[in-house]
């Protein structure tokens, strides 16, 4: 009877303070957190009523965290654009400027980094690779991966953790 929007709205109203505090910690800015929490509300208003949400509070935290990740993505893209622009610009200025990392080097660095990621992941046990690929690249939820591979949810979590830990250790 309660549709997704009502359930989410109820959880939102109840947890608005919690969410604001959490994202203030994450974003290190109360104003940015307010913005993000307001954004969460606007997303709730756009949720299809037919969607079933049984874990509304978790959904809201996840929604906010995804909005944060989107922001990180946006920043990375604009940083990349700035970088490119600066490099091109530098070439125009001429030889006075010492180009410490021109675009060609960037491309090489990106290739090397990709190779490193592939190497790290492919050294992992096969099942770990499979879980990682299904969750990260094919967009299956933990429950779906668990079901598809006939393993427990906590096993899925453990595999994901292994990948993350290894990547964090080995990449700089």
């Amino acid at each position: 009877m309660t549709d997704a929007r009502s359930a989410l709205l109820a959880a939102y109203l109840e947890r608005r303070g919690d969410l604001t505090r959490f994202f203030t910690l994450r974003l290190k800015s109360a104003a940015a957190a307010e913005d993000l929490v307001q954004d969460i509300y606007l997303r709730i208003a756009a949720v299809e009523p037919s969607v079933e949400v049984r874990n509304a509070a978790g959904y809201l935290y996840r929604l906010g965290s995804n909005l944060m990740l989107d922001r990180i993505r946006g920043e990375r893209r604009s940083a990349a654009r700035d970088h490119e622009w600066r490099d091109n610009h530098r070439t125009l200025i001429g030889s006075d400027e010492v180009s410490e990392d021109p675009s060609a080097d960037d491309a090489v660095a990106a290739r090397q980094r990709l190779a490193a990621i592939v190497a790290i992941v492919s050294e992992l046990p096969e099942q770990t690779q499979r879980v990682f690929r299904m969750h990260k690249f094919e967009g299956l939820s933990h429950a779906e991966v668990a079901q598809a591979l006939g393993i427990s949810r906590s096993a899925v979590e453990k595999h994901c953790m292994t990948v993350l830990k290894r990547l964090a250790e080995r990449l700089n």
Binding site: G58, Y59, H142, E157, C160, K165, A168, E169
Partner: peptide
């Protein structure tokens, strides 16, 4: 780093509850 990876993996699961967060 280990704890961070644990939390990250835990919260990737859409079953993570408000209390987990």
């Amino acid at each position: 780093a280990q704890q961070a990876a644990h939390w990250f993996a835990r919260l990737l699961d859409d079953a993570a509850t408000g209390d987990d967060w």
